[in-house]
């Protein structure tokens, strides 16, 4: 064997060994470094700006949820026992007047954005019974909850009769709504969802304008007397 052929005979395996060793070292080092780098990043908290922004699930919050609207409703919620879950259920006219700290007109104005979301459940004079159309409308509204957290019932009575009688009547009307919802809703947490307000004829009476709102008796004659023999019901799409 010549010297030249002998040296080239060793060249191939030597070169292969060298390349393999270098490559193996390089890839092993790369693996080690990339794992170590990930380990360092793991220990270092990710900067808030670098974190992917993920929304958090919550109840609906729509445009009419103005600060003023929410302020009044929150006061009512807390003062009428809904938010705290205590035994006290609902607010009578004096409570609403006190806690809402708002004029009659402004109080009604707050509910204007709920015109299509809610409905006016109408009653016979001096009665609190729900007729079939009232039940149907109430159920339609109740089961169309979407993302709302609270359902408000604002019951009233017309000017006919004494203040005390109308206060009691509007209370019964509010309760008739609640009883029906309990019956059809079968919701164990209904007490935490429904806010009852009864205003008698003392506070925030509805004007004739409200006859144009969706109601359980759209075909009957409507003016300031019958429109106040009612309970306005609506889900409120605000985070209160």
């Amino acid at each position: 064997m010549s010297e030249r052929s002998s040296s080239s005979g060793f060249l191939a395996p030597a070169l292969a060994l060298l390349v393999t060793a270098v490559l193996l070292t390089a890839v092993t080092l790369a693996v080690r470094l990339s794992v170590a780098s990930a380990g360092e990043r793991l220990k270092a908290p990710e900067l808030e700006a670098e974190k992917p922004k993920v929304a958090v699930a919550g109840h609906a919050e729509v445009a009419y949820c103005t600060p003023r609207f929410k302020e009044v409703l929150e006061r009512v919620l807390h003062s009428c026992g809904l938010a705290t879950g205590d035994s006290r259920r609902g607010c009578k006219p004096a409570d609403v007047k006190t806690f809402a700290s708002i004029s009659d007109e402004d109080f009604n104005e707050l509910f204007t954005p709920l015109k299509d979301r809610g409905a006016v459940i109408m009653y016979d004079m001096g009665k609190e019974d729900l007729d079939d159309r009232a039940k149907k409308l109430l159920e339609d509204k109740w089961f169309d909850r979407k993302g709302a957290r609270y359902f408000f019932v604002v019951a009233r009575a017309s000017k006919t009769g004494s203040v005390d009688k109308n206060r009691a009547l509007s209370h019964r009307r509010a309760n008739s709504v609640m009883f029906h919802l309990k019956e059809v809703g079968k919701d164990p947490e209904i007490d935490k969802k429904v806010g009852l307000l009864w205003l008698g004829n003392e506070f925030a009476q509805l004007s004739k304008e409200y006859c144009k709102w969706p109601s359980s008796r759209p075909d009957t004659k409507c003016d300031e007397e019958p429109i106040n023999r009612s309970a306005f019901v609506s889900w409120v799409d605000c985070r209160l």
């Binding site: 191939a12 395996p13 292969a16 060994l17 390349v19 393999t20 490559l23």
Partner: peptide, 9 residues
């Protein structure tokens, strides 16, 4: 890596 070395050989 091994195959690179062996193929090179």
């Amino acid at each position: 890596t091994f195959f690179v070395g062996f193929a090179l050989y």
